[in-house]
Structures are given as C-alpha cells and as structure tokens.
C-alpha cells in the first residue's frame, strides 16, 4: 500500500527528523561526558550497530534497528531452554 501523500513525505519529515537527529547527537554527547561509565558496556555496541543501520542505504531500517536490540532466536529452543 503506497503512502497517500508520497510527494510531501520529505517536506513532512524534514524538521521532525532534524530535531530527532539533534536529540540523538545530544544524548550521545551526554553519554560521552558522563564519568565512570564502563567502556565495554555491550549497550554501546548495540547503539553503534543501530547508528550504522541508520546510515545504511538498505530499506527497512526500523526493522533492522529493532533486530540490533533483540536477543537471538534459536529454533532448537525446546531442547535448550533451561528448566526453572
């Protein structure tokens, strides 16, 4: 199903996207300024992966960012899920 207002998408999205990018940049700056954060926190890798997805020319970036923040699925989970 096509977006009904295709010609206006960039007009509509430009300012909100600009604002979100600045928010994102400011949050990253805030993390950099904070002292005492462990350098090896795995969440930093997830953030870096998410940012790389944003800069990718591939489609379905929202799905790819969600995948970057998701635990892997193992089709053999029935045999491997530990009993509580």
């Amino acid at each position: 199903m096509a977006n009904a207002a295709t010609s206006g998408v960039l007009d509509r999205e430009f300012l909100p996207l600009r604002a979100r990018l600045i928010d994102l940049a400011a949050a990253l700056d805030r993390i950099d300024r904070a002292s005492g954060l462990p350098a090896a926190d795995p969440r930093r890798e997830q953030i870096a992966h998410g940012l790389a997805v944003l800069n990718s020319p591939e489609p379905n970036r929202a799905e790819a960012v969600l995948a970057a923040f998701s635990l892997p699925y193992d089709p053999e989970w029935r045999a491997k899920t530990p009993r509580g």
Partner: peptide
C-alpha cells in the same frame, strides 16, 4: 518487551 520480543514471538508461534 524490548530485547525479548523477537525471540519470544518466534517461540509463541512455534
């Protein structure tokens, strides 16, 4: 929620 959604959804569908 969050990081468990994909894995959990697949398990529910299984």
């Amino acid at each position: 929620h969050l990081e468990d959604k994909y894995k959990g959804t697949r398990m529910i569908l299984d």
